[in-house]
Design a protein around this nucleic acid. Structure first.
Lengths: 215, 215
DNA sequence: TAGATTGTTAATCGATTAACAATC
DNA sequence: TAGATTGTTAATCGATTAACAATC
């Protein structure tokens, strides 16, 4: 259908559209114009129409957009109509937190396994799932059709584990380790660098302090 | 010093510069040119020079940049030369994970307290810190000079808690709840919307699948 | 039909890259 | 001094916004 590559800037906004539209749907709202949505979301109506039109004409002149069908369409674009099988590597606090977060599974993200190099944790149950040794990682991924690997391990081991993941042709890595991973083009990486995020916050606090002083 | 507002695009790149430069420093590298750094980081040398020059001329013609002093400068720009006092609201898995993550404190981010509405958790110790009831939040923030509040609670309570935080003039909110918070301009918000991030990954997996089929 | 609102093209704005004179 | 590399200006590229004709 759509052929020209769509920019990541557009993609990054889709989950937010989906969130607001899902809320509207839950409120029982049937249709919405780009202008009304724009007011709610604090973006321009132009941007909403432009963004959505990358994927096809979901609206109707003089009417607006049907909320329910737009929710369905955006979910489909994001691939949320399919199930994704996931493993977590690193059964520390963060790994456990993600595993226990129920909301992901509502969107088709299914945690199938969790791995750790620490033998003391092996066999321990987190929710329904037990912690496995790293040695089983590769065979587990192949056997269970895993798409996504979550890295919640220190950066030192992240690089080596990534090599293994690439070896068994994982499709995507959700990386919480504080390194940039080097992977082939066909492997998708999404970084969540928490300390980077915190540093941005710190910058903005300081900038604000300075601005106050100056005025 | 610098007067014109610096774009968030630039700020977002600073932590990454800091990371690479710190690595270089640890490797004992004394100086680096924008070109060498550009090769390591996979960004253009032009961008590096442009970015750094927003904050002053840290380099020297014919020489490059001194690694150690650049590390210091960027850290200062990001406000990492100061301590930030933090409270976490929500003592679930994610809250605990963040509290236990030692690397933040190395950068001057000090966790002072953790709060939860669930009485069963009150008094429980996580690391050195015990879980407190929500009723103590406001007075605690004032007494302990807290700058940053971390929200690791469901979105339903996030909105009400944010109101309280604004009331006691918190400086910044690090928001892990899946809502957009409505705060006055002087309060900084940094969102970490994990499910948005996961959806982006999902989109890119699907896009890749499609591209393979087409070729 | 008249009014509303989209889809889409054109204009603007901002961010990135290239180029090069300044200078260590 | 000659070579290297910055700081900075100018050119390019891409993303956002505005405008409006198409159309429900």
């Amino acid at each position: 259908m759509e052929e020209k590559e769509i920019s990541q800037a557009v993609i990054s906004r889709l989950p937010r559209y989906l969130r607001y539209l899902t809320e509207l749907k839950d409120e029982g709202v049937e249709r919405i114009s780009s202008q009304e949505l724009s007011k709610r979301m604090q973006v321009t109506a132009s941007q909403i129409r432009q963004d959505l039109n990358h994927f096809g004409g979901f609206g109707q002149q003089g009417y607006g957009y049907n909320v329910e069908s737009l929710v369905t369409e955006i979910a489909k674009i994001l691939g949320l109509d399919q199930e994704h099988y996931i493993v977590i590597i690193g059964a520390g606090n963060l790994g456990q937190a993600l595993l226990n977060y129920a909301n992901f599974s509502r969107r088709g993200f299914i945690f199938k396994g969790i791995f750790d190099s620490n033998p003391a944790l092996h066999g321990m149950k987190i929710g329904e799932i037990e912690v496995r040794p790293m040695e089983e990682l590769k065979s587990f991924i192949k056997k269970n059709n895993i798409d996504i690997a979550v890295l919640t391990i220190p950066k030192t081991s992240a690089v080596e584990v990534t090599r293994q993941l690439v070896d068994c042709s994982i499709k995507a890595i959700w990386n919480f380790a504080h390194v940039d991973l080097d992977v082939p083009d066909e492997v998708q990486v999404e970084n969540v660098h928490l300390s980077d995020s915190l540093m941005k916050l710190s910058y903005n606090i300081c900038r604000n302090k300075k601005a106050e002083k100056d005025s």
